[in-house]
C-alpha cells in the first residue's frame, strides 16, 4: 500500500479530526447530563439570583478590582522608578519589596492587611472598610507585578529619547514625566490590562475579610447561595458573571496588542 505524499498528509489530517471528534464525543456521551443539570443548572435558582448578583455582587467585584488596580498602578509606578533610580537604597528597597510580594500568596497578604493592621493600630481604621482593605491588600501584591512590567516598559523606550530631552535642557525628572513615562505606558497597557483581569478574579478573596450583604462580591455570593439552596447552580452563575468582565477585557488586550504591533 503506497500513498503519495499529498494523500498521506490528507489522511493524517482526517485522522486528527477524527481523534478530536472521538474524544469530545466520548466525554459528552460519558457525562451524566441528568445529574449535571440537576446539580448545576436549576433555572429557579438562577432566577432567584437576579438582579442581586449584578446590582450588588458584580458591582462590588468591579469596585474592589478597580480599587486594587488604582492602588497597584500608583504604587507600582513608584516602585518601578525606584528600581531604576540612581539612589542605591531606593533600588534595594524596591527590589526587596518586589521579590517579597511576588512570592507571597495574595490571600495571605489580604489576611495580614485585614487582621494585622487593626491589631497594630487599634485606634485607627483602614478608610473605606472592606473596600479599602481589599484595595490595599490586593494592590500591594499587584504593585509588585506592575512595577516589573512598568520598569520593562520604561527600559523599552530608546535611550536617545532621554538624551535628546536632556540636550534640550529638561531635567531628568521632567524628561521622565513628560517624555519617557507616556511612551512607556503605551507599551505596557496590554500587560497591565492582563493584570486587571487577574485582579478581577483575585477580588474573590474578599471573603477572608468577612463581608456583609452590602459588601458581598460575586464568588462569595455564589457560595452563599449554594449554602442556602444546597445546590451548585450558583457557582455556574458566578462563573458566567466573571466572564461579563473578563471576556471584553481580553478582547481589549488583543486589539491593543494588534495596534501596537502595527504601529511598530
Amino acid at each position: 500500500m503506497k500513498l503519495r505524499r499529498r494523500q498521506r498528509e490528507r489522511l493524517s489530517l482526517w485522522l486528527q479530526y477524527l481523534a478530536f471528534v472521538v474524544i469530545v464525543g466520548a466525554v459528552i456521551v460519558a457525562a451524566d447530563w441528568g445529574r449535571l443539570r440537576e446539580a448545576f443548572f436549576r433555572v429557579d435558582i438562577i432566577q432567584s439570583m437576579f438582579p442581586t448578583v449584578i446590582t450588588v455582587a458584580l458591582r462590588n467585584t468591579v469596585l474592589y478590582t478597580l480599587g486594587a488596580f488604582a492602588f497597584g498602578l500608583v504604587f507600582g509606578t513608584l516602585l518601578a522608578l525606584m528600581r531604576l533610580s540612581r539612589v542605591a537604597p531606593y533600588r534595594w528597597v524596591a527590589t526587596a519589596y518586589i521579590e517579597l510580594f511576588r512570592g507571597l500568596p495574595a490571600l495571605l497578604v489580604l489576611f495580614l492587611v485585614g487582621y494585622g493592621i487593626p491589631i497594630a493600630f487599634p485606634e485607627r481604621e483602614i478608610p473605606g472598610g472592606v473596600f479599602g482593605s481589599i484595595a490595599i491588600g490586593l494592590g500591594l501584591t499587584a504593585a509588585a507585578y506592575m512595577a516589573e512590567t512598568i520598569r520593562a516598559g520604561i527600559q523599552a523606550v530608546p535611550k536617545g529619547q532621554m538624551e535628546a530631552a536632556r540636550t534640550l535642557g529638561m531635567s531628568h525628572f521632567t524628561a521622565m514625566r513628560t517624555i519617557i513615562i507616556p511612551q512607556a505606558f503605551r507599551v505596557v497597557i496590554p500587560p497591565l490590562t492582563n493584570e486587571l483581569i487577574l485582579l478581577t478574579k483575585d477580588s474573590s478573596l474578599a471573603y477572608v475579610l468577612g463581608v456583609t450583604a452590602q459588601t458581598i462580591e460575586v464568588t462569595k455570593f455564589g457560595r452563599d447561595t449554594l449554602n442556602d439552596r444546597v445546590n451548585a447552580t450558583p457557582l455556574l452563575v458566578a462563573g458566567f458573571t466573571y466572564l461579563i468582565i473578563t471576556l471584553p477585557l481580553s478582547q481589549v488586550v488583543r486589539r491593543l496588542e494588534l495596534r501596537y504591533a502595527k504601529a511598530r
Binding site: R8, E9, L11, S12, L15, Q16, A19, V22
Partner: peptide, 12 residues
C-alpha cells in the same frame, strides 16, 4: 504503514 498514517493512528 507510511509514517504519517502511523503517527496519526498513534494519536487516535
Amino acid at each position: 504503514f507510511p509514517s504519517a498514517v502511523r503517527r496519526a493512528g498513534l494519536i487516535v
